[in-house]
Amino acid sequence: MAADEQTLSETARIARAALANVAPEPGVAKPDPIMTAEGVRRSFGGITAVDVERVEIQRGSITALIGPNGAGKTTFFNLMTAFDTPDTGKWWFDGKDLEGVQAHKTADMGMVRTFQLTKSLTKMSVIENMKLGATGQKGEKWWNGLLPFTWMAQEREIEARADALLARFKLDHMRNEYAGTLSGGQRKLLEMSRALMTNPKLVMLDEPMAGVNPALKQSLNQHIKGLRDEGMTVLFVEHDMDMVHDISDWVIVMAEGMIIAEGTPDQISSNPAVIDAYLGAHQGKSLLEDM
């Protein structure tokens, strides 16, 4: 632990200090939440995919969202970013009520998400994929499209930023290839770096490490920590517990749509409720209850 403390960056230390006095219980209030959800429910026919009473995401921290398959993590992401609408509930981003706000507006507000099943724009080159990510482009108005002088300068700026990000994620050698020729892991990287092109405040990553090779995982871990150093908040879904332990400041555990535990990585790994959820004890119980 002591060695760990030394390798922590300044921002990590601040984030962990802020969360040190937060009680490890579901729905607990954070000192400075960037995102808050309250009473958010979503059911598909018979099954309730998400039923979150209250959850807050601490600004400037890296928060992991874990839980068994089908726990409702992706659905929760969809609800927060308006790709799906909850049956009931309220949620806020940066103090703004997001009810009724359209998906593209949430990205403008500084909330960007990636998808569990990657969505690379296969018939566009990697660099075009990246450039699409930049927000506030003048040339995206059709009448400006015909007047290149209105957007050429901005385009060069965007391209430089995109190239820098590609180099950071080791995709620069694929710059001019079609995104469809990338491997699964490379697509994950492309999607993540494309999301960063929007200059977000909150980055929501749905299983960013799935399919990425172990050596790259290490450097990706560093990149995610780097996002926090740059002042971004990160919320990510992940099944790899080592990685969760390595990079997150706070962990939220979901099972059967509900938040069942919260706490620091150390607190979570010794929490019996979490072990129960992963071993399926809940499911066993509910089966018995049904009988």
């Binding site: 296969t122 990510g133 059709w142 999301a195």
Partner: peptide, 27 residues
């Protein structure tokens, strides 16, 4: 010209995957 502008880029992106484009803040 239009299809080589950022406008055209958004349009082609929508053909590929409109959810991805939406997540990047385009209407």
């Amino acid at each position: 010209m239009l299809m080589r502008s950022p406008w055209g880029r958004v349009i082609k992106g929508i053909r590929e995957d409109e959810d991805a484009v939406r997540s990047l803040g385009k209407n």
